[in-house]
Design a protein around this nucleic acid. Structure first.
Lengths: 359, 359
DNA sequence: TTGTACGCGTTATCAA
DNA sequence: TTGATAACGCGTACAA
């Protein structure tokens, strides 16, 4: 309705568009079916239809169908203070890591009639709070949180108040909420095993930020795996952000001192940064240094050399998160659960036996 | 609220959680400020605040802030029959092409207080219709459509009825709606120019599906560009889907007959498929055949060889689409506009002069 | 400039 | 089994 405030339908000049037929309301259905609106409501609602005589149900539903009636979710939400809507907080949709997860969430929730609200937080506290609040205002029934920042007071508070919430890829001991993540520790362990089997002894780790749980978990797993093999566990460089630039810088630092024969990247981007550093230094991967990644993003098999990485079932992560939330929303489950999905090491061309000593 | 229906606040046993403080309503603010709810409403609303004495406005706003009042968008929507919500229909969030666009849309709309509903259609008619209907039911104020299928009867109908709608990357002559896209024709023209400058004369095109506008536009632009250079314009293979597999198959077909010295891919995935075909056939890119892509997806610079491709300003596409929609929603603009954003050819290692004849 | 009164479309509660 | 009534929280003609 561009501009203008038509006083009454049809009162304008004939030039106006063929007056958009206003959607029929519950009352329209009710009167057309010769019943009270309340009865129509009950007949139309799955949960209450057995309060109504089957014949009436049939009639109401028939009329509703013929009129093309659809409930107005807004009005319903106002009354029920639920919205059949779920908020998804994602740091940045542009990061290839997240779309599959979000897609999984949408597919699973959509199947149950839920609609998904997405917002990008950039891991920025202000944006996180603002989006979270906006979603709460819209009466979302629950949250799926991919965002790293668990410190957000609003979220903390909401979690404690029992707002349904599932964390993805972000574990936390402090919050008593459900979470789903890939089994990062095992992914790192397998990576280290693989490198050791190839003959590597001097293995370093370019770790992600220790402010997020993936960074912490993977770093800890690296150290443990190395110790398990009786190897030095202290060759770790911690970055402050998962990015190619950070990976490059970290790798250059490693190459400066006595260089390792293999590097376990905290994720694929860091690994790509390692590629850059090696290329700049005139070293070859995997001939001089083996490199591994984590997540196995799209196109990792197309890099030169193809990147050995840990494949995380991202789509399934999203699906599983949605399931946990649905369980919670339906009241079936109340106690938080933590689900770890298995990961697999995908071996490609970036890992090879270490160069022969003195060669 | 797990179970339980507290009759009155505080009536339950002390065991219940510290009674979630119910969000303050307009009435709470009003009574705390000593004014009538209607006055509070006017004071809080930008559009009506000048109907209220400045002092009163100040008081109300102060009280609202101190109480942490936020309007209930649901109640407002019920009254205004707008939802401050926009639906985004995207084929598949998992396709690297789309996240930047969606991100742009969200950033721009979010800045104006709109919330974004996303749904994946997989370019499937049924899913498209279903999602479109669901969003309409939720009273979205408008749509941003990245989906290829323009034949959807619901969408056609909605467009004709004047439902605010902006198409991204999908042009159409049949529908009178706003659209924004990259200037594909010029992108292809520049690509062909580049190849001709390198010395290529025998250039083929692996075209995307002609059921979507990008496929059509790029194919047409290819032919025109070739004719402009006085070259054969009929070396075109049309694929039925934008995928690596389709690109590979198409390329194998081209190599079967007398092979071209350069191939213009309909998009990056098709180009990658061409890489595959060349590798299988023992040919080298760019030594034997040059290859180009379209879109310049992330990591294209990391392929071997790095892919020459046309960079499309995807994020800006999303931003611009959101702007068009906002203009429409605010009633500022009523006539549909079509915006073409400039694209740039990014030359990388996959294009080189053609092999010397008889070499 | 502010207050009154009503309705947006639905569902919950009570009464019949 | 159904009907009547109120209420969710807000915006807005209209009256004061």
């Amino acid at each position: 309705m561009a501009g203008g405030t038509p006083a009454h339908p049809g009162s304008g000049p004939a030039a106006t568009l063929p007056a958009v037929a206003p959607r029929p309301t519950l009352r329209d259905v009710a009167s057309a079916a010769g019943v009270h609106p309340a009865t129509a409501s009950r007949a139309l609602n799955e949960a209450t239809r057995d309060l109504v005589r089957p014949a009436t149900v049939a009639k109401v539903r028939a009329v509703a169908k013929s009129l093309g009636y659809q409930v107005n979710p807004i009005a319903r939400s106002l009354k029920t203070s639920r919205s059949e809507t779920v908020g998804v907080l994602v740091p940045d949709l542009t990061n290839p890591l997240f779309p599959p997860i979000v897609r999984g969430v949408e597919d699973e929730l959509g199947g149950s009639g839920y609609t998904v609200l997405t917002a990008n937080t950039d891991n920025d506290p202000a944006r996180t709070s603002a989006n979270f609040a906006a979603m709460q205002a819209r009466q979302v029934d629950g949250f799926i949180v991919l965002t790293a920042l668990l410190e957000d007071p609003l979220m903390q508070d909401a979690a404690e108040r029992g707002v349904p919430m599932v964390l993805v890829n972000r574990l936390t001991e402090r919050l008593d909420v459900s979470a789903v993540a890939g089994d990062d520790a095992s992914g790192i362990a397998r990576t280290v095993d693989h490198l050791v089997e190839l003959g590597h002894r001097d293995i370093a780790h370019v770790a992600g930020p220790l402010t997020v749980s993936t960074g912490v978990v993977r770093e800890r797993a690296f150290r443990e795996s190395m110790r398990r093999h009786g190897l030095r566990d202290d060759r770790v460089v911690v970055t402050d952000v998962y990015s190619e630039a950070a990976g490059r810088t970290a790798m250059l630092g490693l190459l400066d001192r006595d260089r390792p024969t293999a590097v376990v990247g905290g994720n694929d981007l860091l690994a790509i940064g390692c590629y850059d550093a090696l290329e700049e230094t005139g070293l070859s991967c995997p001939d001089d240094v083996s490199v591994t990644g984590f997540n196995d993003m799209p196109l990792m098999s197309r890099l030169r050399p193809p990147l050995t990485s840990v494949r995380v079932p991202q789509y399934e992560l999203g699906v599983e998160a949605a399931r946990l939330l649905l369980d919670r929303l339906s009241g079936r489950t109340v106690t938080p659960r933590v689900v770890l999905l298995p990961v697999t090491l995908v071996v490609r061309g970036s890992t090879a036996p270490p160069p022969r000593v003195g060669a």
